[in-house]
Nucleic acid binder design. Structure first.
Length: 388
DNA sequence: TCTGGGGTCCTTTTCCTT
DNA sequence: TCTGAAGGAAAAGGACCC
């Protein structure tokens, strides 16, 4: 299977590209006012002076994305805002505008499916494409098609996009990182040793900070070094499934198909409080947040046409440790009251004497509303009294 | 000065039934 | 009646991704 990996650069503020700018933080009241004030207007025309500077922001939150001048100061995605402010206090802080991103996301994916219909959705700004069946897809190793896609996206949205072309999804994703932003990179099977093996293991999609640290401790730093390890040795240290996968990945092997449709497994809502809350001292506030979360999950379920049997909660204590509890019901539910009741029972099973920073509500074991009951679970109860 | 929110998938533990 | 093994489902946690 030949695959594209395309990721669109959602940071579309041309007049800010030369400035240090970060997008992120928790939405505040004045953020909404600002977004409201300029609703519908191209963000490129919003006066820079309207935005606060990072050093003036006090509150929780992380960076969603940053311009290249900001990255030059060492700030980047997922970094806490307070830490970022220490590194680059003069950066401009923009609020996230997810509704707006979703609009652009939809448009960008429409453009792609018009050209190459076999597309896998990987989130707001990324997709995989299987272009094996696209007429002319193989011309110049895929470059012609990649250029067409880039141009079509730019025309329709004003967004630039990076594209990786390779024999499979794993390599296409890595290729897409080679020339960011708006680059096209093609990786052929014979490029494995020259282009992939010199890269750090962390560049493999699926190797995160924990695995990377473990690999480093074992003296393995590059993908090539990983590829040189005996598969059995990796299995001993990383488990049967993950160890074998690490070996395959290091050799650029990946058989996963491009999946065009999938059903959700769970739907959840969670929120980090502006300040840590205590179950007893802040009971009223916490109760209101809890109810609101249940209502939002219920609304999401109903809007999307799902109901679920497994209701769960998540909470994070002030030391950042999280716990979850869940409970599976006999009947799938989708209404806020039933969710709140089951979630409330879960809450009774956790330590509520410590201060909390986050609370979440989740519904899993989803099924479509009205779908045939795929729940054979409970065998019919024998009528008592008839049995002796 | 800490560290968002929405997910998926996998492993381990626990509990229940046979 | 007690005990233990086996296996499945549910629960809990953790790693990872965008």
């Amino acid at each position: 299977m030949d695959a594209f990996y395309a990721s669109v650069e959602l940071l579309r503020y041309p007049q800010l590209q030369g400035l240090p700018v970060v997008i992120g933080g928790r939405r505040r009241r004045d953020d909404d006012a600002l977004l409201q004030k300029y609703a519908g207007q191209p963000l490129s025309e919003i006066p820079v002076a309207e935005f606060p500077l990072l050093k003036d922001y006090a509150g929780r939150g992380v960076i969603t994305t940053a311009t290249y001048p900001a990255r030059a100061f060492g700030v980047g995605s997922a970094m806490g805002l307070m830490k970022a402010a220490a590194l680059c206090p003069q950066a401009i802080l923009l609020p996230v505008d997810f509704d707006e991103y979703r609009k652009y996301s939809r448009r960008f994916k429409e453009v792609i499916t018009e050209i190459a219909p076999v597309m896998e959705d990987r989130g707001v700004d990324e997709v995989y494409i299987d272009f094996t069946q696209v007429p002319g897809g193989q011309r110049e190793g895929g470059r012609v098609l990649a250029l067409l896609i880039q141009k079509s996206i730019l025309d329709a949205t004003g967004l630039t996009c990076s594209i990786g072309v390779a024999p499979n999804k794993l390599l296409a994703k890595m290729a897409s990182e080679f020339h960011k932003p708006k680059g096209i990179s093609i990786v052929r099977p014979e490029d494995l040793q020259t282009l992939i093996w010199p890269l750090p293991c962390r560049k493999i999609n699926g190797v995160g900070p924990k695995t990377d640290a473990k690999l480093q401790a074992l003296g393995i730093h590059t993908i090539g070094e990983l590829a040189a390890q005996d598969p059995g040795w990796l299995v001993e240290r990383f488990g049967k499934s993950y160890g074998a996968w690490l070996h395959e990945a290091s050799w650029g092997r990946d058989e996963r198909p491009v999946v065009t449709e999938s059903e959700p497994v769970s739907i959840s809502r969670e929120t980090t409080f502006e300040r840590d809350l205590h179950a007893v001292r802040d009971k009223a506030e916490l109760g209101a947040i809890f109810t609101a979360l249940c209502e939002r999950v219920a609304a999401d379920l109903q809007r999307k046409g799902y109901e679920g049997r497994t209701i769960g909660i998540k909470l994070r204590y002030d030391d950042f440790k999280s716990v979850t509890r869940d409970q599976t019901l006999e009947q799938a539910v989708a209404d806020a009251k039933a969710i709140r009741q089951a979630a409330g029972a879960c809450l009774k099973r956790v330590d509520l004497t410590r201060r909390l920073r986050l609370l979440g509500v989740r519904v899993g074991s989803l099924q479509r509303v009205g779908a045939a009951i795929a729940t054979p679970a409970v065998p019919a109860e024998p009528a008592s009294g008839l049995l002796f």
